[in-house]
Computed example of a mutant assay.
Amino acid sequence: MKYIRKSEDRGKANLGWLDSKHSFSFGRYFDPKHMGLSVLRVINDDTVKPGAGFGTHGHRDMEIISYVIKGALKHKDSTGNEYIVPAGEVQRMSAGRGVMHSEFNASNSEEVKFLQIWIQPDVKGIEPSYEQKAVLRKGELTPIVTPNGMDGSLSMNQDASIYRLELESGKNFTLETESRVGYLHIIQGELVIDEQSYAAGDAFALSKNEKENLIALTDIEALWFDLPL
């Protein structure tokens, strides 16, 4: 395990209405040691105050996934989509040749907390598209975004997959990459690998043909990214 990203070392942006922690270089935060992994370019851990949000802005040629942890996120874009994404649901927007959108806290009384994830697509200039759904648990490792939308997951334009890992306290689980690379981002809980503990906001990468056994010290929710070399 060569790449470890501890929560307290992430980039930070606090704009009053937004408290954001950047796993990789983003906006005014730049660190050449943390530019992403494989096609995974952004993981922003965002908390937005009631009624506030990101005004209309543009994207192109990026797969943008919103994983809502707490509260609800209101999405509106230039293709006519206007939806609320509550905790427990996942949204994927393929920006393609260009799309304008906004994201606001759907509540005027409670914060919304979500992960904003960007993955570089394997095709450019396509028609923008949007998908949203609740992904029901299918064991300890549940696919939530995959290249072909397998097993009830969302689809995206890249040979990469995102899984939700859920473990009960005391359970063991083995992560392995074979001919791929992987990245685990912990949303909540605490686990240990080789006597090294990891908690909410921490992350680590596995290289090609690497295997690690993790032990959940508490109930765990995490995202596992299966990525091309």
Score class of each variant (00 low, 15 high):
Lys2Glu: 13
Ser7Gln: 00
Asp9Trp: 05
Asn14Leu: 15
Gly16Met: 12
Leu18Pro: 09
Asp19Arg: 14
His22Arg: 03
His22Asp: 02
Phe24Arg: 00
Asp31Ile: 07
Leu40Met: 02
Arg41Trp: 01
Asn44Met: 01
Lys49His: 11
Gly51Pro: 08
Gly53Glu: 10
Phe54Ala: 12
His57Val: 06
Gly58Trp: 11
His59Gly: 09
Arg60Leu: 11
Asp61Glu: 12
Ile69Glu: 06
Lys70Thr: 04
Lys70Met: 04
His75Leu: 07
Lys76Asn: 15
Asp77Lys: 05
Thr79Cys: 02
Ile84Val: 15
Gly88Lys: 06
Gln91Arg: 05
Arg92Tyr: 13
Met93His: 07
Ala95Arg: 04
Arg97Tyr: 15
Val99Pro: 06
Met100Asp: 14
His101Val: 13
His101Lys: 11
Glu103Gly: 10
Ser107Leu: 10
Glu110Phe: 03
Glu111Pro: 03
Val112Glu: 06
Val112Met: 06
Lys113Gln: 09
Phe114His: 04
Phe114Val: 05
Leu115Glu: 01
Gln116Pro: 09
Gln116Glu: 10
Ile117Leu: 05
Gln120Leu: 14
Gln120Glu: 11
Pro121Ala: 10
Gly125Leu: 13
Gly125Asn: 13
Pro128Phe: 10
Tyr130Ser: 09
Lys133Pro: 09
Leu136Gly: 14
Arg137Tyr: 06
Glu140Gly: 11
Glu140Ser: 15
Ile144His: 01
Ile144Ala: 02
Met150Tyr: 15
Asn157Val: 13
Gln158His: 02
Ser161Arg: 11
Arg164Thr: 07
Leu165Ser: 10
Glu168Ile: 12
Gly170Lys: 11
Lys171Val: 12
Gly182Glu: 09
Leu184Gln: 06
Ile187Pro: 01
Leu191Trp: 04
Leu191Val: 08
Leu191Thr: 03
Val192Ile: 14
Asp194Tyr: 02
Gln196Ser: 01
Tyr198Ser: 00
Ala199Gly: 03
Ala200Phe: 00
Ala200Trp: 00
Gly201Ser: 00
Phe204Trp: 02
Phe204Arg: 01
Ala205Asn: 01
Leu214Gln: 10
Leu217Gly: 04
Asp219Tyr: 12
Asp219Met: 13
Leu223Phe: 05
